[in-house]
């Protein structure tokens, strides 16, 4: 809504030159803010969950493996390397754009951080909101 209305308002009041200039500046500013916001927002949404662990493959794993889902589904697994190879292959078939030269390092990164001997992941809880008190079966 906001995105569509704002530029129109800007154009309607721009009958005078000075105003046009001011409004154009506001428009440009608004666009910059919007671009900034769209860049920032995916990060906020991704942040709704655990982070992938640090390591040389962290940045690539974030880009490749958090496109469709967040990190929850990854960090709760405790599997050995042969299983991680199959999993990365399955996700690649499903659309993860893993470059052939990155595959081994990515598999090592996941098997090291989420191998069978790593302590279990502790799940978090969703908040109790106000509707909890009113809840009926």
């Amino acid at each position: 809504m906001w995105m569509r209305n704002q530029p129109r308002q800007g154009l309607i009041v721009s009958s005078k030159f000075v105003h046009l200039f001011v409004h154009l500046a506001v428009l440009v500013g608004a666009c910059a803010v919007l671009i900034l916001a769209t860049i920032l927002i995916p990060t906020r949404v991704q942040a709704a969950g655990p982070a992938l662990p640090s390591g040389t493959m962290q940045a690539k794993a974030v880009t490749l493996c958090m496109e469709c889902h967040d990190a929850h589904i990854i960090v709760q697994q405790r599997m050995a390397k042969p299983a991680w190879i199959k999993e990365v292959e399955k996700m690649t078939r499903w659309g993860a754009t893993v470059a052939p030269e990155d595959k081994d390092a990515l598999v090592d990164y996941f098997s090291l951080n989420f191998g069978v001997d790593v302590p279990a992941y502790e799940a978090t809880m969703t908040a109790a909101t106000r509707s909890a008190k009113k809840a009926k079966p």
Partner: peptide, 19 residues
């Protein structure tokens, strides 16, 4: 904590996709 409207104190197995 994560707020999921209509859901109370649930164990979060995944957020996107929601489990």
């Amino acid at each position: 904590k994560l707020v999921v409207l209509g859901k109370e104190e649930m164990i979060v197995r995944s957020f996107r996709f929601l489990d």
